[in-house]
Amino acid sequence: MDFTLNAHQEAVLDAVGTLLSRHAGPARLHGLGGDEPGYDHDLDKRLAEAGFLDIAEPGSICRLDAALVLEAIAGSLASSAAGWRLLVVPTLGVDVDGPVAVVPEGHSGPARFAADADTLVVIGDDHVRLVRPDRGAARIRSRLGWPVGDLNGLPAGGVIHDAPVSEVRSWARVAVATEMVGAMQFALDITVQHVSDRRQFDRAIGSFQAVQHGLAECAVAVEGARWLALEAAFTGSAGTAAAALAQASEASKLIFRRTHQYHGAMGFTREYDLHLATLRLLALRSEAGSLGRPAAACAREHWGI
């Protein structure tokens, strides 16, 4: 085991970091509409051209490098379906281009990227389907930091024969967990900065133990989610994937409440960046739930209960 980046991983993260610093980040998201952004096709194009969206080797069970790239993309608050592309698409066994949305079988209603996706990946209990949302889902007003479409039923057909259904579901879990980790780290970082700078009663509010303990628990929760997600991306283990998503989902509840609380009124202004990360967590958690309630799914993966 090795918890440090190797030279190749460092180089990849360095390169994607440079790209993201120029073409993603909170200012870019504000430009796309802030908490109701459009889809960032330009970013996807740049990521694809640089080869980052195809970094997972088809056929290989190890998608650690893809997960590391995704964590960076998510941490830059990209308005992109790169998560599905990086971790779910390589499991399908078929070529898929363009933005992707992933929904459970029978889904109706809001879904991230549904209005922008060229392809819908539909995960059922015993099958995976690829369908084109030919009529296009209507873009709906959503203010959780993602472009959201409203699916009014799913087109029939498109079953992928021999698709490894449970693997697809596992990788979807790893993708959502990793995206949560990126957004949570963003929220945690600016909160740590805020409580270190903000002074009341002649001292930084981050020097109060109530605030320190609250943030320390947030940090432990996020670290747990990060390393479980990375481990799951390396091993492809269904049990670890389920645990990673459950850990990220629980952590996201802490992060949402506490980072806003410690920002005071500042945290609910639209000019400030915090809400761009925290609101996203709510959408991600709802998608985590549509993959099976995360904690219960973890119990099921380990004991079949």
């Binding site: 918890f3 479980l228 389920a242 459950a246 380990h302 004991w303």
Partner: peptide, 27 residues
């Protein structure tokens, strides 16, 4: 179902503790 939820949360926490301990052992 409530107990299944509790079991899942507990298993998740054990897994998180495991991987975080492994990071220390790696150091």
């Amino acid at each position: 179902p409530m107990a299944v939820e509790a079991v899942g949360l507990a298993k998740t926490a054990c897994e998180a503790a495991r991987v975080l301990c492994y990071r220390v052992i790696d150091e």
